[in-house]
């Protein structure tokens, strides 16, 4: 679905991502994980075109991402960020329908899609007429998720979508996310710093450190066959935290 070919990114002398090759498979959830500044969010922002690679190229379903193609490609991606990124001057429904309306998608179709997705994401109907300021953090992320899924995107890009939520809400949203991904057979790229979340949601886990991939594979691969001590330390550090 998405291929990174020798993609790197640096801001002046600061390297955010060393030259990287990486494939994201269709209908899989790929999790990018690693300590702060490892380059995981950078990869996501390169795919959605908020950053341009310093070297290399990114192919999306056969098309190279470039300034001329990015607008159309973005409409085939869904993007959810930590704070939801909802526009405060629009109600939840207006936020969700902003792009479909702008693109002139059929009203009834969008309406039934909205109903379907709100049920799937367990968003109460009455919150659709509320403004973002009137919604709880969990509700905002649900609205943001629905907005991202409205046009049946080829890929869903999630940048630490649950990081700002309290643990109870986060746990229930993790369950719902998994249900949604499975139900829609959705291709997902998820950025997180929580190994438990990565293990629960990810088909494939990509562990990064200082702008480079350390190891990529299933959680079992990383746990049982770590390529170096950093991998096992990263997994164990989080496990110790859970047990303590």
């Amino acid at each position: 679905m998405i291929q990174l070919q020798g993609v790197s990114k640096h801001f002046g002398p600061v390297v955010a991502l060393n030259p990287t090759d990486l494939n994201f498979e269709e209908r899989q959830t790929t999790v990018l994980i690693g300590p702060s500044g490892c380059g995981k969010s950078t990869i996501l922002r390169l795919i959605i075109g908020l950053l341009e690679p310093s070297t290399g190229r990114i192919r999306f379903d056969g098309t190279f991402i470039a300034p001329e193609t990015i607008l159309q490609l973005r409409r085939r991606m869904g993007y959810v960020i930590q704070e939801g990124g909802l526009f405060p001057h629009l109600t939840a429904r207006q936020n969700i329908l902003l792009l479909p309306t702008h693109l002139g998608r059929p009203r009834e179709e969008m309406q039934s899609r909205l109903v379907e997705l709100s049920e799937l994401a367990r968003l109460p109907q009455d919150s659709l007429s509320r403004y973002p300021m009137e919604l709880s953090g969990g509700q905002r992320q649900r609205v943001s998720l629905i907005r991202a899924l409205m046009l049946k995107p080829d890929v869903l890009l999630l940048d630490e979508p649950l990081a700002a939520l309290d643990p109870m809400v986060r746990a229930s949203l993790q369950t719902e996310l998994k249900a949604v991904f499975q139900h829609l057979k959705q291709t997902v790229v998820l950025v997180t710093h929580g190994m438990a979340e990565a293990a629960y949601l990810g088909d494939k886990i990509v562990l990064l450190r200082q702008g480079s991939i350390v190891q990529a594979g299933t959680f079992a691969d990383l746990r049982d066959r770590p390529v170096d001590s950093f991998v096992s330390e990263f997994i164990n550090a989080q496990r110790r935290l859970v047990l303590s």
Partner: peptide
């Protein structure tokens, strides 16, 4: 983040 959301959503600069 809101500027980036507007761009990432797939709206043209004018919209």
């Amino acid at each position: 983040p809101l500027r980036e959301s507007a761009a990432a959503l797939g709206l043209e600069p004018r919209a």
